[in-house]
Design a protein around this nucleic acid. Structure first.
Length: 801
DNA sequence: AAGATCAAGCTTTTT
DNA sequence: GCTTGATCTT
């Protein structure tokens, strides 16, 4: 972790406010070197293709850069910034460049710096919507009812606060879960609706209860001098709308605006940008409508679709030459995304060699899918006739939902294949980190009630519900913070027993630590260690015998180490809330497992896309909740997935999967039908041909299957066999995996009696393509793929295998 | 006040 | 099937 981005924000916030700074810097002479470069030809332009070059050279006025996957979007964007600087149109701190993640901002800074000759380019206003908003808000906090040192609550804090409000209003928590309320409030904030601006119809839909709670929540946040993530944007927009003079300062200051991932902006972000760009309209938005996958958290594809209406005369540039993937992969992706209506439309092309077709394979169940992919990874690691050896770092498994990861983790642990899960619980979201941070917060600001609640009984101090309610009561009665309330309670003897002693130790410790933070130039790293030690927090984990305790202690050490990058505790706390990244660099090559969402912006030579089954992908919930819109977003997710692959893309599905513990029969994803056949190679089932490359072979007879048993000679398979000798072998399964033999459908007729490995016997009710409606005797009516059932004789109940 | 047992719910995720 | 939260028990 580093505080790089946030440190910039901090400096700017501490600088003289608003206009004076703007004036002072505007008069600074432009360095000669920059002026000189303006006249000289710019060598970096020669590195661009015509489209990229057009996007870079169209500097004034609105520009929409439609950049397909792998078309060198970041290159165009960074070069554009460099060009703006080199032609003397703007100085580095007059460029506003907005991204969605800190990672993207950091990367871009690095690349611009690189192009500029390896120095820090001084792009003070390159950052996320949120971090830039914080920077602005800290300067004008009092105008939106906050103090400049406001804290930023994360989702967890937000939820706990809402829960308190719900309980306080005597509302049934079952009918109004905090998560639901949080969802509603966030969606309102995404649309830039303050409580007063929520349309009556929308508010009424929740019996006016939601709007009441929203108002209460906002009041509570102000009294805590806190914001949530949504507020950062909402308050900034409100500020700009209410104070035109302040808006004007920023409009003048930001001579050029650049926006990355424009398709992911929500209404609040859109307004934020439009307000800032309104005067000069020097705004360049980069995005790809086909990669809009965050609709569920408020992103509006509409923003990018109507850019030309918002900014008449906009220069639209399409980046369509792809430098990432082979033609087969691109064609497969294009084929799928073509199913979406209302696209801006791009045609990706490449000069690359054809390469391998996209591979498609079906499996009996999720475990077998994981096993097969594990074997494939090992094969690819060694290399094959068709493909050179690959490092595990070059391979990734992209899943729709995180619960799919488990099957892979289990399998890889079994065969000893190194893997990394990307996007797991982030460092700052871990319990021990949040606890420690709460201690620091309370030491810095003794009236941080949320922090108090979090740590007062962690570690256990014998202060249960009753004691905590007493503290609350005393605090409220006296208008005190909870910490002072606790002191008052102790003073009046309102608490007895062992709890009293421990509470006294706690409050006295807090007083000491707070005092320490007031000393100028105190050693904050040392203080942090002292706090964790004296509070008993470290001891709590040292005494914990659960397997994760050592890791947690390790994380705490990391946290203390991270403090070194900051001036003091205060500075650390003020800025850390926006950096939620986990930057532990691991050793050794590992295959990456992540969700499709987490994969956006990444690329890998080898990509596996498992679980392409209706209901899982596309996700049932997505379709239920958002209908066609939801399905289209799922389809874009499929597009994102396929286009992550550079050389080899393998899509797979399983016929059976355990969903919430229940075995369910799965149908192949409708997206599979949308894959253009000419670019897809259908693989034979696992256990038959060892997962080599090549076209589909005719389904072998049983004898051949037995003969090809040496397939199970891969190292992973052997290791697994050794470790789980008692587990049932895959023998019966392997015989039944003759899926994808879609031609075999014709051999069934309505009324046939069939057998299914998991559901038992049943009778065919109907046939739809390669899918059968079967009424199972025990499992009820199910839709199954024809390849997974076997015709049985009416007269005999022999298991047909 | 803290451990134990049971019921309910369960995408995707950054800031 | 597994985790989380709420209630029950000691």
């Amino acid at each position: 972790m580093n505080g790089y981005d946030e440190n910039d924000a901090f400096e700017a916030a501490a600088a003289p406010q608003g206009a004076p700074q703007v004036e002072a810097q505007a008069q600074a002479p432009v360095p000669l070197s920059q002026r000189a470069m303006a006249a000289r030809p710019a060598p970096y332009l020669d590195d661009l293709n015509p489209a990229q070059r057009a996007a870079v050279e169209a500097m004034d006025g609105p520009v929409l850069m439609l950049a397909g996957a792998g078309t060198g979007k970041t290159k165009a964007l960074t070069t554009r910034i460099v060009h703006l600087l080199n032609t003397g149109r703007a100085r580095p701190n007059e460029v506003l460049a907005v991204t969605f993640t800190n990672k993207a901002a950091r990367e871009m800074k690095l690349r611009v710096g690189h192009l500029m000759g390896g120095t820090d380019a001084g792009l003070a206003w390159m950052g996320t919507f949120h971090s830039i908003s914080v920077k602005i808000l800290r300067r004008h906090a009092e105008l939106v009812g906050l103090k400049s040192n406001f804290t930023i609550l994360d989702t967890d804090d937000q939820l706990r606060l809402l829960k308190q409000l719900i309980t306080a209003s005597h509302i049934d928590e079952k009918r109004w879960p905090a998560r639901m309320l949080a969802g509603i409030i966030n969606s309102w904030k995404n649309r830039a609706w303050t409580p007063g601006k929520v349309p009556a119809a929308e508010a009424a839909a929740y019996n006016n209860r939601g709007i009441e709670l929203y108002q209460q929540y906002q009041d509570r946040l102000r009294s805590l001098n806190a914001t949530d993530f949504g507020d950062l944007l909402l308050h900034t927009v409100t500020l700009f709308q209410a104070y035109p003079d302040i808006l004007q300062q920023y409009q003048r200051w930001f001579k050029y605006i650049l926006v990355d991932e424009y398709q992911d902006t929500n209404v609040a972000q859109y307004l934020w940008l439009r307000l800032l760009a309104q005067s000069h309209k020097n705004i360049c938005c980069v995005g790809d409508d086909d990669q809009s996958i965050y609709g569920w958290r408020g992103a509006e594809v509409g923003n990018i679709l109507r850019f030309e209406k918002d900014f008449p005369g906009a220069h639209v540039v399409r980046l369509e030459q792809n430098y990432r993937s082979t033609p087969h992969i691109l064609a497969a992706a294009s084929g799928v995304i073509a199913g979406n209506a209302g696209r801006l439309g791009k045609t990706l092309w490449t000069e690359q060699e054809d390469g391998e077709k996209v591979r498609l394979i079906g499996h009996w169940d999720g475990e077998e899918e994981a096993r097969w992919i594990g074997d494939e990874l090992e094969t690819l690691q060694r290399g094959t006739r068709a493909m050179a050896p690959h490092s595990l770092d070059d391979m990734a498994i992209l899943v729709r939902a995180s619960h799919q990861m488990r099957a892979f983790e289990d399998q890889f642990l079994t065969i000893g294949l190194p893997y990394r899960v990307i996007g797991g619980p982030r460092f700052y979201e871990r319990q021990e980190i949040r606890d420690a941070m709460a201690y620091f917060r309370l030491a810095v600001s003794p009236d941080d009630d949320l922090a108090f609640e979090r740590v007062v009984n962690t570690p256990k101090r014998g202060l249960g519900d009753k004691a905590q309610q007493n503290i609350q009561r005393v605090a409220r009665a006296g208008g005190l913070s909870l910490l002072d309330g606790a002191r008052a309670l102790l003073a009046e003897g309102g608490i007895g027993g062992k709890g009293a002693g421990q509470l006294r130790v706690f409050t006295e410790g807090m007083a000491r630590w707070h005092l320490a933070t007031l000393a100028p130039n105190y050693n904050h790293v040392e203080l942090a260690e002292v706090i964790l030690e004296e509070s008993g927090y470290t001891a709590m984990w040292q005494n914990d015998k659960t397997p994760e305790a050592p890791g947690r202690l390790e994380n705490l050490k990391e946290l203390v180490k991270a403090l070194d990058n900051f001036e003091n505790l205060q500075g650390f706390l003020e800025h850390v809330s926006l950096i939620m990244e986990n930057e532990t660099e691991e050793q050794g090559a590992k295959v990456s497992i992540m969700t499709l969402h987490a994969a956006k912006g990444l690329e890998f030579p080898v990509v596996f896309l498992p679980g392409w089954e209706d209901g899982l992908f596309p996700s049932q919930r997505s379709m239920d909740e958002s209908g066609t819109k939801g399905l289209e977003e799922e389809r874009r997710l499929a597009y994102v997935g396929i286009t992550r692959a550079e050389e080899l893309c393998t899509i797979s599905f399983a016929a059976n999967r355990r969903v919430y513990g229940q075995w369910q029969s799965q149908l192949p994803s409708r997206f599979i039908d949308e894959l253009p056949a000419a670019h897809v190679a259908i693989l034979t089932p696992p256990g038959l041909y060892g997962g080599g490359f090549g076209a589909a072979a005719p389904a072998p007879r049983l004898e051949e299957r037995v003969a090809s048993a040496d397939v199970y000679n891969s190292p992973g398979w052997r290791r697994m066999q050794e470790r789980s000798a008692q587990r049932p072998t895959a023998q019966p399964r392997a015989a039944k995996t003759s899926i994808i033999d879609m031609a075999a459908v014709s051999s069934f007729t309505k009324g046939d009696r069939v057998f299914h490995q998991k559901f038992g016997y049943g009778r065919i009710d109907g046939i739809e393509g390669d899918k059968l409606d079967v009424a199972f005797e025990k499992a009820g009516s199910k839709k199954v793929v024809a390849g997974f059932v076997v015709l049985v004789d009416d007269a005999h109940d022999d298991v047909p295998f």
